[in-house]
Design a protein around this nucleic acid. Structure first.
Lengths: 337, 337
DNA sequence: CTGAAAGCGCTTACAG
DNA sequence: CTGAAAGCGCTTACAG
């Protein structure tokens, strides 16, 4: 099975490689190649099983038609569903995507971003970490298209798309207040990521604005806590707060573990205890009908990210602020089945 | 920010591009380049911020150092965790990976496999569908390294790694028998994939060997069933079987939905009802202590797949049967906390 | 010990 | 309307 090249076809039909290239790129009309020649070339290419070597095209044109995706952990549903939609969108415009996970490991993150650059990706989609900041800025300075997702560097002129975390939590708190809840606990992790900081701030501001005490209502767990440990900690935490009206979980993950803890305390906790998580998934749907969810619009994030990337591919000028998007979260109140 | 090439470095230090290449590839000793020259080159490369253009290397060497990963749906935890480990393993030997989802869509699958070929991937890792068979065979015929995961084409000389589904279910059934259960139901989907067929066969053989009736004990649901519908169907199914001892779910997904149905029927069903799923995850851990799980060793599958791929990269000869691996599943009996 | 040359497969001005 | 030539950035025999 010899690999067929453009030269082979040229030899076969008695034309120059350049003519073959022109025809195979659909520029026959444009370049006014004779219809007979064009047809002979098309036919030969099909018969000989010609497959373009994309690497050669990349080297010559400087466009690899490959995007680089860097997330914290591709096996996490949040990022996996991002990856899914990004691949679909990329595919629809002829791009493929290389992915990497960083595990929140700064060194790894820097290495990955560089490897992707070596592979000449045409654009970057990433959930940044603090340690990537330098490299990200360098990429932007080089005019390489790039979009941050889920997180961002406040103040820097870098394109991003994320959910409006502050507003999402604010609306969630308002929702709980409207249901008459006042003693509301907040469970978060100890990661200092912007989005986590903003969620916490929104909770604090909401409580403050109603002049409600937050004393002892905040639980911060290690970001890499084991499920069993998370359940125990949450259980102890809730157990100490007998008058609790609601618990607001700042992440989906904590919510899942938190629910188990709440279940374990079922007898002690008022039936109208409410839980809000910053995500949605089958677990909530199936095991906690009635729960209130602040949902990140994943599809929307992914599609918007691709859109912002494409915008940078265009030569049309744009204002950086047009490339910084905060999407609203969706508040869903699940009904019991 | 001009892109620095090997030529620029050569000009800078007054050497030939070939010398620079040799040094930067760590072959200075081998080619007996003078230490002074080597050092000057290394220094200049670092100072000028030289980054190898991988596309050029690929074209020249014929090795892209990129693998192609095709799964049914990257957003599914099963495949996402495969993807995670594969990326880690690939990274450790200097490879990147391009991924695609097929959605079980044959046309899409064929398109993806071809696109990856155009991108000159050095090897393929994929969860095959029936419609990819032709393309897969062509790739193997071209001596391109390839490994099938999770599924395979029985009888064809193609490398694969998957869990021994028949044996896994057999052991699970044996486990249930040992607990004294006799009336055991089996819930599966209507997809005709090899692995599903084998799981069902193992269930049937187990029941037959004990001369137990399977009448009305088999539930086959549409593979793309909506969660709500799955719960309803499972509930009705179990509701009609009052003497039931256990339910064996053939997939993790069905298990999750099935558990909800079982919960809804809790009062009617004997306390020692057992459930076996062909997977493990946090949901089970948290919501169904005591459940018995037949776990697919994901890590092992992914690592083995990479190993089999590497084996093909080597020039050492191998027997095709060495590249066809069935891994044992792990039987886990979860304890209540 | 080091450099000049060819070539990977393609595309794109350029010349006729 | 079509072909010859240059070149993308690199590596690898080959020659000295």
């Amino acid at each position: 099975m010899k690999i067929v090249t453009i030269k082979d076809i040229a030899r076969e039909v008695g034309a120059a490689p350049s003519t073959v290239s022109t025809v195979l790129n659909g520029k026959a009309r444009e370049m006014r190649i004779s219809v007979t020649m064009a047809e002979r070339i098309e036919k030969a290419a099909a018969e000989m099983g010609y497959r373009p070597n994309h690497v050669a095209v990349s080297l010559r044109t400087g466009k690899s038609k490959v995007l680089g995706l860097i997330v914290e952990d591709i096996s996490n549903v949040f990022f996996a569903s991002l990856a899914k939609i990004i691949e679909e969108e990329a595919d629809s415009i002829g791009y493929k995507v290389l992915y990497c996970s960083t595990e929140n490991n700064e060194e790894k993150a820097r290495d990955r971003i560089r490897m992707l650059a070596h592979h000449q990706v045409d654009g970057f989609l990433l959930t940044p970490t603090e340690g990537m900041k330098q490299d990200v800025q360098k990429i932007v300075a080089q005019q390489k298209p790039l979009v941050l997702m889920d997180r961002y560097y406040p103040g820097l002129p870098i394109p991003y798309v994320l959910v409006d975390n502050y507003r999402g939590v604010s609306e969630g708190m308002e929702h709980l207040f409207n249901k008459g809840y006042r003693k509301i606990a907040f469970v978060t992790n100890d990661l200092n990521q912007v989005q986590m900081v903003q969620r916490k701030k929104a909770y604090e501001d909401a409580m403050d604005s109603r002049k409600l005490s937050k004393d002892g209502l905040l639980l911060e767990m290690a970001f890499d806590i084991k499920p069993e440990k998370a359940v125990t900690e949450t259980r102890e935490f809730i157990g100490k707060l007998p008058e609790l009206d609601a618990v607001f979980f700042a992440t989906n993950y904590l919510g899942v573990y938190g629910l188990e803890a709440i279940k374990a305390l079922e007898l002690r906790i008022p039936a109208d205890l409410a839980v809000i998580c910053f995500d949605d998934n089958d677990i909530f749907r199936l095991y906690t009908p009635g729960i209130t969810i602040i949902k990140q619009p994943m599809e929307n994030i992914a599609r918007t990210a691709m859109e912002l990337l494409m915008r940078q591919f265009d030569s049309a000028p744009y204002a950086i602020t047009d490339l910084q998007v905060k999407l609203p979260a969706t508040l869903i109140e699940r009904q019991s089945t």
